[in-house]
Design a protein around this nucleic acid. Structure first.
Length: 254
DNA sequence: ATGGCCTCGGTTCGAGGA
């Protein structure tokens, strides 16, 4: 079983790329972030025609998340029941006995800003809810755009980014508190190429110079860690015309 | 030094992203 996550930065723009990617990479589950579509505009028919069921939660202009699956999707929950939030950033469902949580964690804009405080409160509430969710569902995977580079090795220039948004101590501590629920970063279960990233700025030839960050992650509960035989980042779609600035992350479960 | 790109909404610029 393969589960994946991809921030597509507008599903309206990127739907052809998502369908193209799924043709080449027929994963069992694909979590999407930043769909930027209200639910009435979600391309259900196109995704079903590709062989996927789908659950989604969107809004106008910003945010929006979805779970695509080749297997039945049950127990869909939108948002964090412990955190009232007008922004549509979480959707969860059970697929093949695995609780899949698809999250678009807030960006935070800059350290100390209102958006940064919202990010930290949001992460605290996420942790509290996931603790319950993990108890109810021992097989749990948290996939998405975390907007956190967990370690300096996940940043192309850790000196320039020291203490900055995506890298601040408080954000990394929040990430560690997610790990402390008993989850592991699937990507770091395996030996990886140095300078592996999942996002590159559209500006400054970011991708060509590999000036990127690893901010899209798959965290797995204990039993899923035992089943995990690979975790990779697929840079291919970042080379396509009109790409998302993020690329897919894929975990293989035996 | 600054901003440098992309998307959206809605008009040709500002907000937000990261």
């Amino acid at each position: 079983m393969k589960i994946a996550t991809w921030n597509v930065n507008s599903l309206k723009v990127r739907l052809p790329q998502v369908l193209q990617w799924l043709t080449a990479n027929p994963v069992d589950v694909l979590c999407l972030q930043e769909t930027k579509l209200t639910d009435d505009k979600f391309p259900v028919a196109e995704i079903e025609a590709a062989g996927y069921q789908v659950a989604f939660s969107g809004q106008k202009t910003y945010n929006g998340v979805a779970i695509l699956s080749r297997h039945p999707i049950i127990e869909v929950v939108k948002n964090n029941p412990l955190f009232a939030d007008a922004q549509q950033r979480i959707i969860s469902a059970t697929i093949e006995g695995i609780r899949i949580v698809c999250a678009y964690i807030p960006n935070g804009q800059s350290v100390g800003s209102d958006k940064y405080r919202y990010k930290l409160e949001w992460l605290d509430a996420l942790r509290n809810w996931l603790q319950q969710e993990h108890q109810a569902h021992p097989n749990l995977a948290l996939l998405g755009d975390y907007n956190i580079a967990p370690e300096d090795v996940d940043v192309y220039d850790p000196v320039a980014w020291e203490g900055e948004i995506l890298c601040s101590d408080a954000e990394r501590a929040a990430f560690d508190r997610l790990l402390n629920l008993g989850l592991k970063d699937a990507f770091r279960l395996f030996k990886q190429e140095p300078k592996s990233y999942s996002w590159w700025d559209y500006r400054q030839l970011g991708f060509r110079l590999n000036k990127g960050m690893r901010i899209d992650h798959i965290l797995l509960s204990k039993d899923l860690v035992q089943r995990c035989s690979a975790c990779t980042i697929d840079r291919v779609p970042r080379k396509w015309e009109q790409p998302s600035d993020h690329t897919p992350v894929i975990a293989t479960l035996e």
